[in-house]
Each structure stands twice: as structure tokens, then as C-alpha cells.
Design a protein around this nucleic acid. Sequence first.
RNA 1: GUCCCGGUCGUCUAGUCCGGCCUAGGACCCUAGAUUUUCAUUCUAGUAACACGGGUUCGAAUCCCGUCCGGGAUACCA
Length: 517
Amino acid sequence: MIHPTPRLRFAPSPTGPLHLGGARTAMYNWAAARALGGTFLLRIEDTDQARSTDASLQIILQGLRWLGIDWDEGPEKGGDFGPYFQMQRLGLYRQAADRLLAAGHAYLCYCTPDEIEAGRKELEAQKAGFAGYNRRCRNLTPAERAVFERQGRKPNVRFKMPEARVMQVHDLIRGDVEVNTKELDDWVMLRPDGVPLYNFACVVDDVGMKITHVVRGEEHFLNGVKQRLLFEALGHECPQYAHIPLILNKEGKKLSKRDADTNMLDYRDKGFPPEAVFNYIALLGWGFSGDRDVFSREEMVQVFRIETIGKAGAKFDEEKLRWMCGEYVRRWAPAQLLERSAPWLQPAVPATALTTHIAWLQNALACYQERIAILSELPGKLGWLFSVPAMDEAAAKNLAKDPAGKQWLLAYAQRLEGANLPPSWPLDRQGVDAAVPLPSKKDAPEPACAFWTPAAIERDCRAFVESLGVKFGSFVHPVRAALTGTDKGPGLFDVLFLLGKDACVARLRAAASHVAL
RNA sequence: GUCCCGGUCGUCUAGUCCGGCCUAGGACCCUAGAUUUUCAUUCUAGUAACACGGGUUCGAAUCCCGUCCGGGAUACCA
């Protein structure tokens, strides 16, 4: 017992989705376990039978896995300290309760909810400060007990709290805190049906699973005190506790399950990179270093210490999350970008493009890599590659701006017709795109290619514009509009390259025909 | 009501334990500029904070006290 192996757990109740706060709690436990070289386990606290569902459990598990938080023991994993579902541990609670009863640390309480409520009201009326259970059953004589039994009352098991003991508790985050047990109830451990309540099950399991550190939300701080006392009664050393502040919403209130998008899987489905979400959540109350916000899970594990978690609550800022997503998206290699994006591409991108035009698609995606933060933005931006796009307002304006625009488009179409542009989708052009990585960079050497590269297209275009005697800028805007239907997007010559000859020529002419003389 | 915790730019934070290196650093956002064929990226610059009031000290964001504000707890939920 000199150096117990660090063992930490995340103990969700499957009564709802995994939300941001839960994910952060899980992450801090996970990071601490990894940093300490210990074990991270999952325990499912499913004793609230009315609200627990298997669907919630699956959502929680998926959410954790998605974030890259893996567990060593628990559901779907097993382990030597199971079972990891509390409803499968009922016998253990019964045994512990019997021991506590026998040792005089607990007692049977026959009060009905109405009686308890009445007792509490009475204490409140005396304005004695703390008003909880009045402890009526704490010292029942055998005769009194017999009366209740004859009435058919089914007893709860309550923990016998010290009446007014001042405890010094040490919390890894709060430091030393003094708590007077007179603020605490004789709390219910076990219901008549043998289903334990939170504090009791938690301690029995923390003992059984040899938990060494408990990191959880600060709403559990006082539970921690009750639990310490129970550990004491059970004759076990208690784990080290760390109570972390809550994540707040924009209004500064506790981020609840009711707040929009607190379900981890919503972020997954919208195409937020999990590493970015992980990274961002970690920042809500913890800092990697004074001058760096972007870090990997591995880097976090290297420096993480429970004691360095902040004491103040943090507000969730979706803008910074989005920025963080962009940071990650921009770092991906072309193949990675395609692989990550694939689930969001259809139906904007035809299925055959995914199988037969990989290099082309990679190039197209690369052109948007620095223009998106989350993957679900992609399909809306790629449509112009596959079909003639509708003109948006800005594009229509650019098209109509110069009276000579129509002639430019027609002339440029004619010039391109004789140019050595790559073929257009759905013609095969794999070799072309493999040889010419997009987006084109200013100073990069020009790759060898059987067709014009974007740089070659640009040279030709500039020469053409010069011969026209037009300002380059005023020429380029209507062309972009004709080709993509919008005024935003990749560099024009990447656009021409991507689109290929036939599509460019056709679109230029189609657009020209719509422009009034 | 009672108990506990917290309070540095609008937001996330570094600094607080071991007062001086802090004319308070970084990041998001915002603004301006540079690059440029648009948007975006990138780069540069800028705006912006120690909640308030008392102490202690040569010196306080850092230590102490009070006030205010915020959060949490006070269940046969977890």
C-alpha cells in the first residue's frame, strides 16, 4: 500500500447523452491516469432505473471513443474489478450495508417521504440553518421498530453521520477545506428494494475497484465529505479527491443537458474534428502552457497534473472551438483530408468521384482546406465542380459590372478552346491531378504536367488580358462568377485547372448568353 | 436561509503557492495594414483586464480583512 497503482474512473449515469462537462471530466480522469501511468476505467452508475437507458449508454460510449478517450476496464472491455455496471453489483451493496448496520454505522429508517418532508419543514421553521432529515429513526428501540414492521413499512438504510464534527478535508484543487458535518444529513444508502443510492454505491465501488483519485464536478464536493466518512466506517483509506468547477454557458449558468449541442455526437455529426474538440475542452479550466493553445492528447498526457486544473468556472466559447477546428483541418495531408471528409461529401459529390477521381477530389478539397473549420461546410462549397452552379447575388453583380464583360467571356472561351487545359469531369484526369498538387503556392516550383498547370494558365490569361487592354482585376471577377457562380473560393487558375477545358468553355459561353448587351 | 468555492482583457487563460523580473504575457473575437484575382490562409500592428474598499510592506495582480458579484451544495437524482 506504499505505492498503490493509480486507478481513476469516469462514472457516468446513462440517463442522457455525454455532454461537454462530462466529456471534460472523463478527459481529466483519463489524462491523469495516463500521466500517472495508471489505469482508467469506466463504471456505469445505472441505479436510477427510471431514467437509465441503454441508448444513453451507447451514446456516452461512442462519444468517449470519438474523442479518443479509451478505457482499460469497463463496458465492452471487462477487467478484474467488475462488474462495471452498478445494477450488477447489488449483492455487494447489500453486504456492505449489513456490515455497516451491524457495526452501528448505519440504521434502518421507516419514515415515509411525507414524514421526512414534514420533519424538514419543522426544522426549517426553527430556522436552525441547515434543515435535513430529522433523524427520527436514528435511535429506534426494538419495540418501536417492531411496530413499524407490523405496519408493513419497508425501511431504508441510512448512514449515521457524526452530529457536529469539524473535518479538515484536502482537495487536490481546492486545497484544505473545513467542513462541519452538522451541515450534512443522515443520508440514505440503500432503498428497501436493495438499490443503492449514489454516495453509497460510489464508495463501495471505489473500494472494490481500488480507486486512488477521484476527479469530478464540484457539485459533488459535499458528497465527497459523506464519502470520506463512509470510507472511514468501512475501514478503508479514501481516494484523493479533486472537485473541478463546472463549464458555464454564455449566460454564466451551469451548462446543462438542455443547452443546445451539448451532446458530443452532435459535434461529431457536424464534422468537428475530434482532436480539436478534445483540445478545446481541455482548455476549459486547464492550460497546456502560457503561450500555446494547440496540443495533442499525447502532449497533454506528458504534462498533465490534476493540481493544475483551475478553480474558476469557464464559459464555453463556440467561436474559439471553431477556430481550433480550423487549426486542425489545415494540418491534414491531402489523403487524410479526403478520408476525413468522405462521410460529408455525398450527395454533393457523386459516388463515382469518390472511387474513380481520388486525386482530383483531393485537389478540390485541398483548395478548401483553409476555408473551412468543420467538415459539414464542405458539400455546400463543392457543387460547382459537378454541375453548372446558380449565380449568387455577388456573382451576378460581377458579371454585369462591365459592359464589355460579355465579349471578354466569349473571347476567353474561344481562346481556351484551343488551349491545353486538362480534361473535365467525368473524363479521366487522375495523372494530371496527381502531378499538380493544389492549391497552387506562389513560390512553389512548377510541376511537370502534360497539360497546362495553374501557373501556365495564369501566364496565358495575363497575356490575353493584356492584349484585351483590360485591367486584370476587372476581367477576373466575371470569369470567376461564370465558372463558380460565386465571388468566393480558390484561386481562379486553380478553378480553371480543376474544371478542365470543356466545362470552362461551356460555362463561359453560358454565362455570356445570360448577360444583357 | 445556511455552508462551500471562485472573481486578471468581451471570452479561454499565464502570472498568485515562494510579494519586486508585470509599464500584466499568450490565444479567440474585433479593428487597421501587408500579400493578393475574390474569399480564406499567412504576416504585422492596434484596442482591451488585475471586481471594489481597506490594511501589511520600501514595494501587492500576488499576503490579510471586509464588501459586492458569480457559481455550487443543501434529495428515497447522479
